[in-house]
Amino acid sequence: MKAEDHAMRSGIRGFTDRAVTFLAIAATLVVIAPLMAIFAYLVYKGASSLNLDFFTQIPKPPGEAGGGMANAIVGSAVLLALASVIGVPIGIGGGIFLAEFGRGTKLANAIRFTADVLNGVPSIVMGVATYALIVSPHVSWLPFVGHFSAFAGGVALGIMMIPTITRTTEEMLLMVPHAVREAALGLGVPNWRSVMSITLKTASPGIITGCMLAFSRVAGETAPLIFTVLGNSFWSTSLDRPIAALPLQIYVFALSPYDDWHRLAWAGSLVLIVLIVLSVSLVRYVTSRGVLKGNS
């Protein structure tokens, strides 16, 4: 190979290298741009329509100014409370099994895999399944069954929380050093006690943030609620009846032709996103600070 050939080739190589660097930086900027755009727009639109009424009033009929989403906020709280009651214990239990009892076994691998796959099942399918399971059967002696109800929505959201919580609990428990468990067992503490008050306690900040993450994720879910809780525009906290939910209300209002309702949708979106930013930041803070001191 001639000398100038070589020089030219290395020139091209250098150029390609710089071009790729530039492209990678450009790609990152392009990705960050919509996030910034969405945030800026939400804050701009939402902040101007967010006021005390939003948190205290129920929606007004179209054409009347004002009103709020208080019933939807309460409804979301009811749904999320029910979802947490279902999702958190089962999810943490599954995580304990994966990390403490089934480590390395075929059953644990299969469950871990199923949890990951369940995590990827679209939320709309969860909605259809919950409809089929709870809303549509006509069994008179079962409570909550046979009609649209807050209960059905809570169950759908709770099921969606389980895989996330299971996987984060497992990850957090795996970070607890073996020495801690051995010390507990060495003192003659029964295994269940060692798991509940030693291992779980050591990992609890991580597990709580994992639950927060799952919580904030289902807080914004709309698809499984459309045909389970149905939504309404009145005060209701009954589990046995349709109930309003914040994301569902945003969906209905954003697609409506009324400006007042649009404003409420923006304000609701801002409230949702603040909740999510808070929980994601908390998770980040807890995991990056290394809550598990003595992590080996």
């Binding site: 709309t222 996103i273 994601v280």
Partner: peptide, 14 residues
């Protein structure tokens, strides 16, 4: 991470 956590409905509204 934040981009991944924003709910579908908010992307829709935007």
């Amino acid at each position: 991470e934040l981009l991944a956590a924003i709910p579908s409905i908010i992307y829709g509204v935007w």
